Amino acid sequence: MEGDNIPRIGISIGDINGIGPEVIIKALSSSSINKICTPVIYGSAKHLSKYKNLLGYNDWLFSTVQNTRQLNKKQINLINCYEGPNFELSLGTVQKEAGQLAFQALDRATQDLKNGYIEALVTAPISKDNTQGEGFKFPGHTEYLANEFQAEEVLMFLVSEELRLGVVTGHIPIEQVKKNITKKQIKAKLDLMLNSLKVDFKIQKPKIAVLGLNPHAGENGLLGKEEIEIIEPLINEYRKKGTLVFGTFPSDGFFATQQWKQFDAVLAMYHDQGLTPFKMLAFDSGVNFTAGLSAVRTSPDHGTAFDLAGKGEADSGSMLHAIFSAVEIYKNRAEYKELTENAISPVKIQRIIKSSKEKK
C-alpha cells in the first residue's frame, strides 16, 4: 500500500447464483465505502452486471481493471477472473460453471493477497461441493487458505460486536470430533485465540471461556471423561501461568444464562456447538475470521442461500461487517507490528541506564 492508510480489500465473488453478489452490491453501494478502503471485486463483470440490473441497482457502477496497479481509489473495482465456457445466470441453482468462476475468483484473489497486491481478503459464500475440482479439494475457504499460506494451524473465529467464538474442530463429520479433541489440538486453538485477541483485537489481557464436549460438561465423568482427562487439566496449566482461561462450561446453560458476556472470547469444541448460538445472537452482523494466517481474511457468517438469490431480500449486514472487520484487523496488525518493532527491550533499557550512569 503506497502513500496512504487506505487498504485495498479484495472481495471474491463466491457462487454467482447465490446471494453473494447481492450482499456485495448492497454493501458497496454506500458512497462512504471508499473512505475506509479501496474495494476490489474478483469475479465476472458480465455476470455481476446482469445481477445488479436484475436487482434494480442500475446506477451502481464499478470499474473493470486488469490488475491492482490500475485500481481507481474513488470507485469500486472489478478484476475479471473467469476462464471457461460462456454461461448465463441461473439464480438459485447449482451450476458447474458457477463453481468454476467461484474458484477462479478465489484463487486469483488469494494469489494477490499472498503477493501483497491487496491488504486483506473478504470471501463471499461458495457452494462447497460445487466448487470442488482440480485446484479446490477442501471442505471450505478456511482449509483452502490454510493450505495456500502453509499455516500449520488456523482458527475459525466467529466475531461480532457482542461475541467472539472459535472452534477446536471445524468442517469434519461429527463422528470424527471426539478423536480430534486432544490436548495438542485444544492448546493450538487456545494459543491462536489468545494471540489473535492481543494482536488483531487489541485486548491486552484476554479472558477466555472453554466449553465442554459432552452434555453438562461431562457431569464429573458420568457423561464422558474428556473434560476431566483432557480439557480441564490443560485449562489448569494456562491458569498456573497467569493466563485467564476458564472452564469447562456446559454449552446450553452457558449461553442461556448469558455467561458468555463475562468473557472476551469462547472456545467451543465443535462446529455446531459454537456456530448455532453465535448465529442466533449475531446472524446479521457476524463475521467469520481466519485467525492464524499471515494475511487477513474475513467472510460473512452465512452461506449461499440459493432460495433467496435474486429476490432482493438478502441482508448485507454481515458482508458489510466483514469488510469493516478486515480493515480494522489489518490496521490493528500494522499498529501492533510497529509498536513491537519499535519497542525497547528490558536488556537494552538496562544498558542505556548503565551507560548514562557511567557518563556521569
Rank of each mutant, 00 (worst) to 15 (best):
G14W: 00
G14V: 00
G14N: 00
G14P: 00
G14T: 00
D15V: 04
I16M: 13
P21A: 02
E22P: 10
E22N: 09
V23R: 06
I24N: 00
I24F: 01
I25G: 02
K26L: 02
A27L: 00
L28Q: 10
S30K: 15
S31G: 04
I33A: 05
I36W: 02
I36G: 02
C37N: 02
T38F: 11
P39R: 07
P39N: 10
V40L: 09
Y42D: 11
Y42Q: 12
Y42E: 13
G43C: 04
G43R: 03
S44I: 02
K46W: 09
H47T: 05
Y51C: 09
N53H: 12
L54A: 14
Y57G: 03
D59V: 13
W60E: 04
W60T: 13
L61P: 01
L61C: 05
S63D: 14
T64K: 12
V65T: 06
V65R: 07
Q66Y: 10
N67E: 13
T68L: 12
T68F: 05
Q70S: 14
N72W: 04
I76G: 11
L78A: 08
L78W: 06
C81S: 11
Y82C: 01
G84T: 14
P85N: 09
L89F: 06
L89K: 12
G92Y: 06
T93H: 11
T93C: 07
T93F: 11
K96R: 07
E97C: 05
E97Q: 08
E97G: 10
G99W: 09
Q100V: 12
Q104G: 05
L106E: 05
R108W: 01
A109F: 01
T110S: 13
Q111I: 05
D112K: 04
N115D: 11
G116T: 06
G116H: 12
Y117K: 15
I118A: 02
L121F: 05
V122D: 01
T123R: 00
T123H: 01
P125Y: 04
S127C: 12
K128T: 10
D129K: 15
D129T: 15
T131I: 15
G133W: 01
F136S: 08
P139F: 02
G140Y: 12
H141P: 10
T142D: 10
T142S: 11
T142H: 07
E143W: 06
